[in-house]
Design a protein around this nucleic acid. Structure first.
Length: 269
DNA sequence: GAAATTTGACCTCCT
DNA sequence: TAGGAGGTCAAATTT
């Protein structure tokens, strides 16, 4: 990563936040009021607002889809391909589903990473042959309940293309249209410390549940769009430190967005 | 039989 | 320049 200026911007699907009650997260400076989420910078006393945006505004955002929860952090550097990190919390139930990102991915490799007990999985966009978008998923070395998902390059098509291609795929194959698609490598289901060939039960998401129009949120400060939240610590030299920063803010956001329904993320050690 | 996934080998980059 | 680490390829395997 050439640039450690990881900024966090935007937001969340209404799924988790459309609760009318005001919520104040203790000691966080975060408040939810009606459709808006307010974040108060305790240093500058500035307020920032989260509010729904349209899909066509979708760029450089943090995404918090329905549980299991996912956050995307996007580098704001303009000279390098857009990259992002998803932090994804997975619930440990047998019938869990994994939220999708509206894209079809093909796993093209898996690699064990030094210092991490978990393998890293590499994906390419399988929607269009010309699409250069890639995605890397790995368990967080800090918290096995989280996945770190990084993206590089941009899709040269929109998510709708994915839906159409999915339909064509199902029409041209003998598979049932309702067949679920696996969007997470089976290996990620394992908490194994090696790249064992053992196959595990996979996370699946029903293709019929895919909606390209899920509302999202973005962060606004004083009526001006800003990139916020993940602060850039001076002289961050290790990726692990970056993860720490992201996790700190993720916890705050998660508590903010899931304040009253009893959903709690696992506490880190 | 086709598509997706796994996994070892190979390639590239960095120190 | 060598070695290590990470990224990609592609054949084998699984679904």
């Amino acid at each position: 990563m050439e640039d450690n200026n990881w900024d966090l911007s935007a937001v969340v699907r209404s799924h988790n936040i459309n609760k009318p009650n005001d919520v104040i997260v203790p000691n966080s400076g975060l408040k939810k009021s009606n459709d808006q989420v307010i974040i108060t910078d305790q240093n500058s006393n500035q307020e920032m607002y989260l509010h729904p945006i349209q899909p066509n505004q979708f760029s450089q955002q943090i995404i918090l889809p329905p549980l299991p929860t996912m956050i995307m952090c996007v580098s704001t550097t303009s000279t390098t391909p857009q990259e992002s990190i998803y932090l994804q919390q997975l619930e440990k139930s047998d019938d869990q589903e994994l939220t999708d990102d509206k894209r079809a991915w093909r796993n093209y490799g898996q690699k064990s990473i030094k210092g991490s007990p978990f393998p890293r999985n590499y994906f390419k966009c399988s929607t269009l042959g010309s699409c250069k978008a890639t995605k890397i998923i790995e368990n967080s070395p800090k918290n096995e309940n989280y996945f770190l998902v990084s993206y590089s390059d941009e899709h040269n098509h929109d998510p709708l293309t994915y839906c159409r291609s999915l339909a064509l795929y199902n029409n041209s194959s003998k598979r049932k249209l309702s067949k679920s698609i696996n969007i997470v490598p089976k290996a990620l289901n394992l908490k194994a410390s090696s790249s064992s060939s053992k196959r595990a039960k996979s996370f699946k998401v029903d293709a019929s549940s895919i909606s390209p129009f899920a509302p999202t949120l973005e962060i606004e400060r004083n009526n001006e769009m800003v990139d916020v939240v993940v602060e850039n610590k001076d002289d961050i030299e290790e990726e692990e430190n970056t993860y720490d920063n992201i996790f700190m803010d993720f916890e705050e956001l998660h508590e903010l967005l899931l304040p009253s329904n009893g959903n709690e993320i696992d506490k880190r050690n």
